[in-house]
Amino acid sequence: MDAAVVAIEEHGPDVTTEQIAGQAGVSRPGLYRHFDGKDDLQAAIAARSVERLVTELEPVWRPSGRPREMLERAIAAHLRWLAEHANVYLYLKRNSLPTGGDSVESASTNVRSVVSAHVTQMLVDGSLGAEIPPATAHPLAWGLIGMVDAAAAHWLDEPHGFTVEQLGAQLTEACWAVIGVTIGSRAVEALDTVGVDTA
């Protein structure tokens, strides 16, 4: 899997199975002794990539400071991972789409699922400074992650002169506004005091 990721980053999202096998130092038939076809290989690459992203975001799952700053850090970490591994992300978007009812979910959907589950839990358990009811937290988390993911994917294709830092700032503003509309301005004002040193 590590060799596959290296091959994708080197050759781009149109990497061939032969190039992946070459990077791993095995023949193409040898590669498929480890996987049950191309779909299984792509699913394994997707799983490894999600694992790496979750590891990259590990500090975010241990929140500290003000909620808006935590949001900003989480978005920045996600965008940094996408920018540094753009070819892997594009490969997953292109090649790990489900082909039938028994197939794995797409890699991009899997990434959103993992991150959304973490964010939902943080909203529900009060890690971000207030306990939000599950009925509100679930669509809020999934909506925020969906917006960030879609905007980031478009930015990778067409940056329009925006830096990753500028995109992060814009998405932080947008997400914070959505949170405010969803839970109310008074709740947001209360959240904004969490983590502030009043001594």
Rank of each mutant, 00 (worst) to 15 (best):
1 M>L: 04
2 D>C: 07
2 D>G: 13
3 A>I: 08
5 V>D: 06
5 V>K: 07
10 E>C: 11
15 V>P: 04
24 A>N: 02
24 A>L: 02
26 V>Y: 01
27 S>W: 00
27 S>R: 04
31 L>G: 03
31 L>R: 05
34 H>L: 02
35 F>K: 00
39 D>M: 05
39 D>C: 08
40 D>T: 04
42 Q>G: 13
44 A>L: 01
46 A>K: 02
48 R>H: 12
52 R>W: 03
54 V>N: 09
55 T>V: 14
56 E>L: 09
57 L>V: 00
67 P>W: 06
69 E>H: 01
71 L>A: 09
71 L>G: 05
72 E>H: 03
73 R>C: 01
74 A>P: 01
81 W>D: 02
81 W>Y: 14
82 L>Q: 08
83 A>Q: 03
83 A>K: 04
84 E>M: 09
87 N>M: 11
92 L>K: 03
95 N>H: 13
95 N>E: 11
97 L>R: 10
100 G>I: 01
103 S>A: 12
104 V>G: 14
104 V>D: 15
105 E>W: 09
107 A>D: 04
111 V>M: 02
111 V>G: 04
112 R>D: 06
113 S>V: 15
127 S>M: 03
127 S>V: 10
133 P>D: 12
138 H>S: 13
145 I>G: 10
150 A>H: 12
156 L>S: 04
157 D>E: 11
162 F>G: 11
162 F>K: 12
165 E>A: 11
166 Q>P: 12
168 G>Y: 05
168 G>H: 04
172 T>F: 13
174 A>N: 15
174 A>D: 15
177 A>F: 09
179 I>E: 10
180 G>C: 03
184 G>P: 15
185 S>Q: 15
187 A>F: 05
187 A>N: 10
189 E>G: 10
194 V>G: 01
195 G>K: 13
199 A>E: 12
